[in-house]
């Protein structure tokens, strides 16, 4: 019994079963905040705690799933290329949104987290939190942050942006759909983009283009800015 727990089959199977369950749960309840990734990770944490299973034993199987993150990140090139006409047509607005979004994203975290006295590795983990998860984790890793925390922070940011983003933009008087799409894509990556797509096709398309570009801009800006602002 205890030996099979240390085999890859356990971590793989447990992850897949709980992820499928969490996905069903979200489909059934239609609650945006019940993100399958967060729900299944929490359920697995509870399971490991109850059954006294070490993370390293679980990760014998888990690592096979994590491996797929690499090719999945490369695959982000495909939606970007599909949206090339949108990028060409709105390049000035998109470039402005991408540069401003990435810059403000990094600087605001560095300032706010220092203000609240966050530990250094916490701050570095939160720095790429507006970027799509796989890119954000790579950035966190290269900065010396904790990729696990980054993944959770990115999902929470996405839920927040998707649930309240459009309302906040309306409240501050941003009506133009291109500006709304870019703001939500830059702040809340794919989860925000999905909400945009529900409301307006142009906003959704622009938001989708912003995701990968903000990721690239953030990875270029994060390291020099964190060295500058974090003593």
């Amino acid at each position: 019994m205890t030996d099979i727990i240390k085999e890859p089959i356990f971590g793989l199977m447990a992850t897949l079963i709980l992820y499928l369950f969490a996905k069903r749960l979200q489909q059934a309840t239609k609650k945006r905040w019940l993100q399958p990734m967060l729900v299944s990770a929490l359920l697995l944490i509870v399971l490991l705690n109850f059954a006294h299973i070490d993370y390293s034993d679980y990760n014998q199987g888990g690592q096979f799933i994590t491996f797929l993150l690499g090719p999945a990140t490369i695959a982000l090139a495909i939606p970007l290329v599909r949206q090339l006409p949108v990028l060409q047509k709105n390049w000035r607005a998109i470039m402005t949104g991408v540069v401003v979004g990435a810059l403000v994203g990094v600087v605001s975290v560095l300032i706010v987290a220092s203000f609240f006295d966050a530990a250094r590795e916490i701050t570095l983990s939160l720095t790429p939190k507006s970027v799509t998860t796989p890119i954000a984790m790579e950035i966190a890793r290269s900065l010396g942050g904790i990729p696990s925390l980054t993944a959770a922070a990115v999902i929470l940011t996405g839920v927040l942006g998707a649930m309240a983003g459009p309302e906040i933009l309306t409240f501050v008087g941003v009506k133009n759909q291109i500006a709304r799409g870019l703001a939500i894509g830059a702040a809340a990556h794919a989860l925000g983009t999905n909400r945009c797509l529900e409301e307006n096709e142009l906003a959704g398309a622009v938001s989708g283009v912003a995701i990968v570009l903000v990721g690239i801009a953030t990875s270029l800006l994060a390291s020099p800015l964190s060295r500058l602002l974090l003593n």
Binding site: L44, G62, I65, M137, A152
Partner: peptide
């Protein structure tokens, strides 16, 4: 791969 992107961060999330 993109359709199930969420699955691929689960083991890292458990690392919390």
């Amino acid at each position: 791969l993109l359709g199930e992107m969420g699955l691929f961060f689960v083991p890292i999330g458990v690392g919390l």
